[in-house]
């Protein structure tokens, strides 16, 4: 199985924020969720993939092609949905689609019209008259109409009603039935990931905490619950974050089997959700 996207040692320095040597790979036929709290670097990575910003170091390949050296070939295979879709506001949807279509040899006008019908998009309406959710749907229709092999969606579900949100996630799952295609989407709505993503790349303060298959995350990450004595033993080194509660201590670990081996049998270890990981990682530095 080939990779739709390979990111190696990617670095981007801003004043006050650095994306630090990010590496991950997205296999074809899979969906990857890019997750992390606000300011973790999700949008920065997406912008780097699309060459919207310049990288300080590292390498990005899409279907084996360098995104800078083979920019046109790469972009012709990408469908992109921005978190706040911005197009020429006073143009009707019909004109926007007609302006975009000639850029893609694989543009399918019938498919586009069918998507617009399905999404309830009025083609005569001006882009500025659409709600955020409708703008998102239109961007999605544009991205899907040219049969993109790699779909990159930046916070696609924010601002969508629950019905369409579920439809979108189902559509993404359907899309990768064609095993050449792949989807990368950023989100901080963790339930979307649990429902859809095959791989999860978790970012925190510009660094990749992990990039793993979803099932592996479920198996290796856990929440340990117990008394305050948990903080004194050698097991303390296995905790990524600790939260003290009125009843004792809760700790996040990335190595459930090691913690299980180090603690007495019968200790309470629960499976960690992505939301747990996000909350613990965010608070971990100050509470651990």
């Amino acid at each position: 199985m080939g990779y739709a996207l390979e990111v190696n040692g990617l670095r981007k320095e801003y004043k006050g924020f650095t994306l630090k040597d990010v590496s991950f790979a997205l296999p074809q036929g899979t969906i990857m969720g890019l997750v992390g709290p606000n300011g973790a670097g999700k949008t920065t990575i997406i912008k780097l993939i699309l060459n919207l910003i310049r990288r300080t170091a590292g390498e990005i390949k899409v279907f084996g092609l360098d995104v800078i050296g083979r920019e046109k070939a790469v972009k012709s295979r990408i469908g992109f949905v921005h978190e706040t879709p911005a197009l020429v506001e006073d143009a009707p949807l019909r004109d926007l689609a007609a302006a975009v279509a000639p850029f893609y040899a694989s543009w399918d006008e019938d498919h586009f019209r069918s998507l617009c019908g399905e999404f309830g998009l009025p083609l005569a309406k001006k882009f500025k008259k659409l709600s955020h959710g409708m703008k998102m749907k239109f961007s999605l229709a544009l991205a899907l109409a040219h049969g993109a092999d790699l779909l990159i969606l930046d916070e696609p579900t924010s601002g969508l009603d629950p019905v369409f949100r579920r439809e979108l996630l189902e559509r993404l799952s359907g899309l990768i039935q064609d095993e050449r295609k792949a989807v990368l989407f950023s989100t901080h709505i963790t339930s979307d990931l649990e429902a859809t993503a095959d791989y999860i790349t978790f970012l925190h303060k510009g660094e990749v905490v992990f990039s793993l298959p979803r099932d592996e995350v479920r198996e290796t990450w856990g929440i340990v619950k117990g008394g305050r004595e948990l903080l004194n033993g050698a097991v303390r080194a296995l905790f990524k974050g600790v939260r003290e509660t009125p009843f004792g201590v809760e700790a996040l670990t990335a190595d459930v089997s090691a913690v299980r081996a180090a603690l007495p049998s019968g200790s309470l270890i629960e499976r960690a959700t992505i939301e747990d990981i996000m909350v613990f990682m965010d608070r971990g530095a100050s509470h651990a």
Binding site: L50, L52, K75, H82, A86
Partner: peptide
């Protein structure tokens, strides 16, 4: 309209 990001996501070079 802040449309430049979308424009540059099209298959064109700068």
């Amino acid at each position: 309209f802040k449309a430049s990001a979308f424009n540059l996501s099209l298959p064109v070079t700068r």
